[in-house]
Design a protein around this nucleic acid. Structure first.
Lengths: 239, 239
DNA sequence: CGACACCTTGAAGAGGTTCAAGAAATGTGG
DNA sequence: CCACATTTCTTGAACCTCTTCAAGGTGTCG
């Protein structure tokens, strides 16, 4: 665009250890830079992609926060995940060449657009990239196993505790606090993800606050007792 | 082994359209045969692999029926899927080089062992294979989205209806009846998969039978009214 | 400052679980 | 091949967790 436009380059990116393979040599790193065709800004509330749209790229989140959700024919809605900087979205689109879920920015966001054709090409040539792509998809499968465990076998308090611990852990990996977080999503969206109604989410937050486990002020949450949360998720592992 | 041992070859396999890419030329097809190192028989009740084991191969199911399940540290258990002939298991192991779930044969089974290293190698050379591997992983991600929708937003009857429809549809794709099926899993395993207790599964089966939607005799199920099941899953799409 | 979205809390109700007992099927060993 | 043990399934009744419905409070943005 203008002289201020920063070169789009993974090699310069401080997130690369989150979204790109490690241990590449310089020439490979240069080639990796070719993957990111462009960047794209998505204002809060807008879709990065929608269910049904043609798939042609994966997206690496540079800044901002997303939710992905699927919906059934009769309008039921389910949030399938919340994604933050360094994470990859769009994998759902590969199988049918069309996206099968919506990705919505929960705050102003920017993503790196990585053309899928280019990823395919390059990962034939760079073993580390091939392996990395496989790992990213496998990781998503394993993550979803965890969500299934949560939805299938945990009670409301356990679900919310697991949710908070997961969020704060991922934020911590990005340099944020271990004990303080700002929720980017509504109670309803949390509820949808956890298979609960928004009232239940709200009540459970209040209960945690009463018990002195967390402090809640709207979307600001401070975790006062991480151990208590862990104990909720894994009730006395020592039987 | 002996003169009766059949050559292990995808090119001869009547399941190849389920588990292998289509539209390969002869030379590519020959190379694909190299992927399957060996076959392995798993008697009913035995594990194909366990949580924690080293990962080094994917498995294509030739015959038999599997469940996969994850468990939390405190011993909670969640069935994450049921797999049948032509389907691939083991994808969970790629990310960490170790399996993160158990795969158990629910009836005597045989699988094709596909060394992961070999898959990686060959899919760098055969584009169709590379694409196929990606699609298989993406399909699994999308399938799990569906399960999350089910677990997060459906009631017991809807879950069981969706489960039956899904099973019978996959069986039908393998040449079995559209309306009759034999369940290979217990009520408890169904319940675990659907986030319900076995008693609820049993009661819901009975209710469906009372309503004339299905006939149940232990593990033998005959679907009398497919439309009714579909309507349960998608209550009046025409609002 | 008013409109709107979001959150909290209470009370009643429904759906699913838990506990319990018995029936049906399956497997095992004599 | 039958008897017995074991696993699996069904059904009932009481209970509990989460939902539903409702109302009011809080925060935000034009």
């Amino acid at each position: 665009m203008n002289s201020n436009s920063i070169k789009v380059a993974c090699s310069n990116c401080n997130l690369r250890e989150l979204c790109m393979p490690m241990g590449l040599n310089d020439s490979e790193m240069e080639r990796i830079d070719e993957i990111v065709a462009t960047r794209r800004k998505i204002p809060r509330g807008e879709n990065l992609f929608r269910n049904g749209e043609k798939f042609n790229a994966l997206y690496a989140i540079r800044t901002g926060f997303f939710k992905t959700c699927v919906s059934s024919e009769d309008g039921r809605d389910q949030v399938t995940g919340f994604q933050m900087a360094g994470e990859i979205i769009g994998l759902d689109g590969i199988v049918s060449d069309h996206h099968t879920c919506d990705a919505v920015a929960l705050e102003d966001a920017e993503v790196c657009v990585m053309t899928y054709d280019r990823i395919e090409e390059l990962s034939r040539e760079i073993n580390a990239l091939q392996r990395h792509v496989h790992k990213i998809m496998s990781r998503e499968i394993v993550r979803e196993h965890g969500v299934m465990l949560l939805l299938g076998s945990m009670r409301a308090e356990e679900r919310l505790a697991a949710f908070l611990l997961n969020l704060v852990q991922r934020l911590h990996a990005r340099g944020f606090s271990q004990s303080e977080l700002v929720l980017r999503m509504t109670r309803e969206e949390i509820g949808s993800y956890l298979g609960l109604k928004l009232e239940t989410v709200s009540r459970t937050f209040s209960k945690f606050a009463e018990d002195g486990i967390i402090e809640v002020k709207q979307r600001h949450v401070r975790i006062l007792n991480t151990e208590a949360l862990k104990l909720l998720v894994n009730p006395q592992t020592c039987q």
